[in-house]
Design a binder for these strands. Structure first.
Lengths: 334, 334
DNA sequence: GTGAAAGCGCTAACAC
DNA sequence: GTGTTAGCGCTTTCAC
């Protein structure tokens, strides 16, 4: 049986109220009593029961974080960012892994409420469109990242995917490329699918460049899907001189296809990635890409959430900055 | 204000005990009452308060997982393994990231107790040797992974690092290599440092092969440290024909050094990794390595913990199997 | 400054 | 089968 405040009170010959007061510094206590209590606390190795405390305080100091897939480096670094800010304020993390299923997302949302979590961070959730009401019903401070959620009063944290992809494509164009293909993310993931492809299209249009049929292929985040996508592109009659790939992971697949086909990067074709995962600097040639730091997403999301918890004003929509990382996989052409 | 059992009871004209009974199916309730209660529950969107429940049940259905570094793919996959087994039994995860500091480890250990966590999984903790008593004091079901902890009554989950490294080295020898170097993990991490290097040494000795001065270099897990370590080895007079690298991440650094120096793999030198991270199949050439699945670690640890929670008998020390994954980075020599 | 007592939301005897 | 009640470990009025 664990030691309780009651035990401490008896051993120290004071009331449990007094013990509580010295433990929380909530009210002045006569020094001698305070010392006596502290001594007993030391001796017994007493640890307050946070559950009981939460029941009365209505605060758990736990925040729930939901991510679709933890084996994905992007999300684990996002977690790292969240943790780095919340742990500083003595909040801890309840981790919910949804495995990309709406069912689990909804289950964890319910669990968050039941466990009386103080706040929630939702990354790249699927169940939106049709279940947003679940979010509003929550009545729990919350921030979502990886979705735009325009028109809802829920704070979001995101990069400007359209602009970043535009910048990446424009860079390719500035290096003299004109026939530029695109391996996009899956269309069911708006940020990596629609938005990033949108930025690419926008840049091409703005520079008066055509997008031939077969120059755009869709992947599903895995390296393998990048491999397959670029294969489809290269089996067309017309070949690009550069490829913009919507995620680094798929870009690795693209690099591998090119390698396996004996097509040299960047001499024969240039490749531009997106995300700047650790792996981008580990490939040979090293991948030029868009820096999109999940750690910063996490920090930003954590900060927005903490602000809510302190009732400070927050932006409904914060944008985390991006920039281009130029390495070896893009070459200028004449 | 959230809806409580008391509210439900009033609205349904029953006692709170009855509501509790239908919610938990803990005792038979007359169907009409049960229906009435359920209807009110639906209408109000009632969610039970898990905190209050935990206070009386003395069970939180939360298990604490402590890892040193979540940006490391190894640990995030371990988490995935843990989650995959515990979530099936309706346990959820409280995540503690220690950032490799003993201070935070101890802090989270305390927090685990305060939050009345039901069980604890500790991965690659640092504070052992001098603080093991903290673990015993815990009086909480627990399993540790990434440490051997011989002589203590704490269940562990591990690969046999010595044997696995032995096997990897023996494989290199079976391919005709005789001059084999080793890039080991840091010595402060016994499993990846001492044990893996130990397996290498043992295999060399068993086959009567010498280990020349300068054939062993220590890295610290990062690709960069692998790069530097193998550089030191290759700057010696005598060159190896094969290298056993204690972790894949460092092996990527090794591969990159070799690439940058124009030394071909596997034609000029063979490289054998350890871990079988995703990246091992993404490098060119693809890395031959030891399969050491953190996901399985996680699953095994989770299973051992669940057994304890059910008071089932457990093994004090469970070994997760390893095997060799042969890809392209090793070549047979005559 | 200190203690007695109420109550947080729930479960589990215990009576009926 | 159902309701009443004690109590989980804590914080916080409210008296003194």
């Amino acid at each position: 049986m664990a030691v309780t405040i009651k035990d401490i009170a008896q051993l120290a010959n004071v009331s449990i109220a007094t013990v509580s007061r010295v433990l929380n510094n909530s009210k002045p206590v006569r020094p001698e009593l305070r010392d006596k209590v502290m001594r007993v606390v030391e001796e017994t190795g007493f640890q307050p029961n946070a559950i009981a405390r939460s029941l009365v305080n209505k605060e758990t100091r736990i925040i729930g974080v939901m991510i679709p897939d933890i084996s994905n480096n992007f999300y684990s670094n996002l977690l790292y960012g969240v943790d780095s800010v919340i742990s500083e304020y003595d909040y801890s993390m309840f981790l919910a892994i949804s495995d990309e299923t709406v069912e689990k997302e909804l289950k964890y949302l319910r669990l968050f409420k039941e466990k009386q979590i103080d706040g929630v961070i939702l990354a790249s959730i699927h169940f939106l469109e049709g279940n947003i009401h679940s979010l509003h019903e929550m009545q729990v401070p919350m921030v979502v990242t990886g979705h735009d959620l325009h028109g809802y009063q829920i704070p979001t944290v995101n990069v400007n995917n359209v602009q970043a992809s535009y910048d990446a494509t424009a860079y390719l164009i500035s290096q003299g490329h004109r026939r530029i293909a695109c391996v996009s993310g899956p269309l069911w993931d708006p940020p990596c699918g629609l938005d990033r492809m949108g930025g690419y299209r926008k840049a091409m249009r703005a520079h008066g460049l055509p997008i031939p049929e077969g120059f755009v292929a869709e992947g599903d985040f895995t390296p393998k899907s990048g491999y397959e996508a670029v294969k489809r592109i290269f089996e067309e009659k017309e070949r690009p001189t550069a490829i913009f790939v919507a995620t680094d992971l798929m870009a690795v697949g693209v690099l591998n296809y090119l390698h396996d086909e004996g097509i040299r990067v960047p001499d024969d074709v240039s490749v531009m990635g997106f995300d700047n995962l650790e792996i981008a600097s580990l490939t040979r040639p090293m991948l030029s890409t868009v820096h999109n730091d999940p750690y910063m997403y996490g920090r930003a999301a954590g900060e927005q959430l903490l602000k809510q918890l302190r009732n400070e004003p927050i932006e409904r929509m914060s944008t985390v900055p991006h920039d281009l990382v130029i390495r070896q996989s893009v070459k200028a052409v004449l």
